[in-house]
Each structure stands twice: as C-alpha cells, then as structure tokens.
Amino acid sequence: MFSTVIMVVQLILALSMLLCFTRALLGPTTFDRIAALDTFGLILVGFIGTIMVSQQSIAYSEVILVIGILAFVGSVAMSKFLERGDLFERR
C-alpha cells in the first residue's frame, strides 16, 4: 500500500515537472520562466525525496541539498539581474 502511494506521488510530481518545463519554454515573460525553473527545482527535490523514501536510504541527501541551493541562488541572481541589469554592484 505504501509503495503504491509513493508511486502515485512520483507520478504527480513527474507531471508537475513536465508542466513547469513547458511553462519555462513557453512562458510569455522572463519572470514566468524564472518562477517555472525555480518551481521545477523544488519539485525535483521532492521527487528525489520520494525516491529516497522508496529506497529507504539517505544516499541522495547531498544531491537534494545541492539542487535546493542552486535553485535558490539561481532565482535570486536572475531576479537581481533583471531588476537592476547587473549582478555585482560597482563602486
């Protein structure tokens, strides 16, 4: 029963990753694409988490950490670049 629930959750997460990927490709604005890629990264973290639960191991915990950090830093950097036009302030 538990493995069935995990498989259904993975199927839903895979479908939502597909929808986020299409939004990132077809998004009308750059901000939509940034939001879609950030959401894609967060859903990927959840998907890998469900894989860890189904395998009953913590083998991918570092992968989850790296993907989460990269998604956050990428979103912040792109948002700052689009808002100001540069990433680093020059004095």
Results as ranks from 00 to 15, higher is better:
residue 1 M to H: 04
residue 2 F to Q: 11
residue 2 F to E: 15
residue 3 S to R: 12
residue 5 V to L: 15
residue 5 V to W: 11
residue 6 I to V: 07
residue 6 I to E: 09
residue 7 M to Y: 15
residue 7 M to C: 10
residue 7 M to I: 10
residue 8 V to G: 00
residue 9 V to Q: 07
residue 9 V to C: 06
residue 10 Q to M: 15
residue 10 Q to L: 12
residue 12 I to N: 07
residue 12 I to P: 05
residue 12 I to H: 03
residue 13 L to F: 07
residue 13 L to E: 02
residue 15 L to A: 13
residue 15 L to R: 04
residue 16 S to Q: 05
residue 17 M to W: 07
residue 17 M to S: 02
residue 17 M to A: 07
residue 18 L to G: 13
residue 18 L to R: 11
residue 20 C to A: 09
residue 21 F to E: 00
residue 22 T to Q: 05
residue 22 T to S: 08
residue 23 R to F: 13
residue 24 A to N: 03
residue 25 L to T: 01
residue 26 L to C: 15
residue 27 G to R: 10
residue 27 G to W: 02
residue 28 P to F: 11
residue 29 T to R: 07
residue 29 T to Q: 09
residue 29 T to L: 04
residue 30 T to E: 00
residue 30 T to A: 01
residue 31 F to K: 09
residue 32 D to H: 08
residue 32 D to C: 12
residue 33 R to D: 01
residue 33 R to G: 06
residue 33 R to H: 01
residue 34 I to G: 00
residue 34 I to C: 07
residue 35 A to N: 10
residue 37 L to W: 02
residue 37 L to D: 00
residue 38 D to V: 07
residue 39 T to G: 06
residue 39 T to W: 03
residue 39 T to P: 04
residue 41 G to L: 02
residue 41 G to C: 09
residue 42 L to K: 02
residue 42 L to R: 10
residue 42 L to C: 06
residue 42 L to H: 01
residue 43 I to Q: 10
residue 44 L to T: 10
residue 44 L to Q: 03
residue 44 L to S: 12
residue 45 V to G: 01
residue 45 V to A: 02
residue 45 V to S: 05
residue 45 V to L: 04
residue 45 V to Q: 09
residue 45 V to K: 02
residue 46 G to I: 08
residue 47 F to V: 04
residue 47 F to R: 08
residue 48 I to C: 10
residue 48 I to P: 03
residue 48 I to Q: 09
residue 48 I to F: 05
residue 49 G to M: 11
residue 49 G to I: 08
residue 50 T to K: 08
residue 50 T to E: 11
residue 51 I to G: 11
residue 51 I to Y: 06
residue 53 V to L: 14
residue 54 S to P: 00
residue 54 S to W: 10
residue 55 Q to M: 14
residue 55 Q to S: 14
residue 55 Q to F: 10
residue 56 Q to A: 15
residue 56 Q to L: 15
residue 57 S to N: 08
residue 59 A to D: 15
residue 59 A to L: 13
residue 60 Y to R: 15
residue 60 Y to P: 07
residue 61 S to C: 12
residue 62 E to W: 10
residue 62 E to I: 13
residue 64 I to P: 15
residue 65 L to I: 14
residue 66 V to A: 13
residue 67 I to P: 03
residue 67 I to K: 08
residue 67 I to Y: 03
residue 67 I to D: 11
residue 67 I to Q: 11
residue 68 G to Q: 11
residue 68 G to L: 09
residue 68 G to S: 14
residue 68 G to A: 09
residue 69 I to Q: 07
residue 70 L to K: 06
residue 72 F to S: 12
residue 72 F to K: 05
residue 73 V to P: 04
residue 73 V to H: 02
residue 73 V to Y: 06
residue 73 V to G: 03
residue 73 V to K: 06
residue 74 G to D: 01
residue 75 S to Q: 12
residue 76 V to C: 08
residue 77 A to E: 03
residue 77 A to Q: 02
residue 78 M to K: 00
residue 78 M to V: 01
residue 80 K to P: 01
residue 80 K to T: 08
residue 80 K to A: 11
residue 80 K to F: 13
residue 80 K to Q: 12
residue 81 F to C: 04
residue 81 F to E: 05
residue 81 F to H: 09
residue 82 L to S: 02
residue 82 L to Y: 05
residue 83 E to P: 00
residue 83 E to R: 14
residue 87 L to M: 05
residue 88 F to S: 04
residue 88 F to G: 00
residue 88 F to I: 12
residue 89 E to S: 11
residue 89 E to N: 03
residue 90 R to K: 04
residue 90 R to N: 01
residue 91 R to F: 06
residue 91 R to I: 09
